[in-house]
Amino acid sequence: MTGLEEFLSGTIRLSAPLILAALGEIVSQRSGVINISIEGMMLGGAFAGFAAGAATGSAGAGLLAAAAAGALFGCVFAFICVVRNADQIVAGMGINIAMIGLTGALFRAIFGMESLATAPRLEDYPIPVLSGLPVVGKVFFTQSVLVYACGALALGIWFFLRSPQGLGLRACGVRPEAADAAGVRVGLTRFAAVVFGGTMAGIAGAYLTLAQTSSFAENMTSGRGFIALAVVIFGRWHPIGAVLAALIFGGANEAQFWFQARGSQAMIAGIHVHIPYQALLALPYVVTLAVLTVFAGSYRRGPRALGKPYVRSR
């Protein structure tokens, strides 16, 4: 692979978990529910995928377990926030913190302190013929199944949001009372949207433990769920927009590895500069802040009823 191919393919690999989580969050937010616990749900999915993969020796089983775990967390969140109408931000924080404890404690209980346990890897699947194309073949068509799923799901969600059911879902996020009057079951729609978002976050987490590495570490999502939230905003709550936004964040992350691999020496205006590795580790977060600072305000502020519980008045 050439340097460029390597960089682009790495960018896509690092964007994939952001895309998966952001696509789920878009559906959830378009229905009016802001779920800031995709960070915790990704962590839960990462652990469930790792544990089930290690136990069964099958990456596919790990992936299924992660999706199921994500759906379960989605149900918990939806029960608290959609059925009981609790504050979505507070409940989201609760799940995030609980997940650090749950996955950390389970990991140590099952795999021990000095664990070197590994899960089977979800191997790349080169698409026949297409993967033989110059540049594009290496970059786009020699990837994990989950990367292809990103593309398919982005298109699928785009079409879904434009369908009659999708219209109903979007109505729940803009004017739930109008949606209700038009016969849309607001609670049910939001519940389903949140569970879908949780499932996607679970899969996104499994991508980290099954496709990117084959190991688990405590709190390994380290803010990716929050970066996915930024991706949703930067992508203007649109699935294709989110894919493009995620690629920018993935690129920043790949650039960080690229610098680290090259001894973090850089030439700036002819002067050798030593970049401390901590600055590189902070780069994805700084980029997120910078992107939001430039773009967040100039966009419309998302679905109107976002974050507001819907209580039917009699």
Binding site: A86, A91, G94, I95, I97, A98, G101, G104
Partner: peptide, 17 residues
């Protein structure tokens, strides 16, 4: 492991909400 404390805290926040 002490990380279990976070589970307790998370559950507290959820029950308060």
């Amino acid at each position: 492991s002490t990380v279990i404390v976070y589970l307790v805290q998370g559950v507290i926040i959820l029950s308060v909400a």
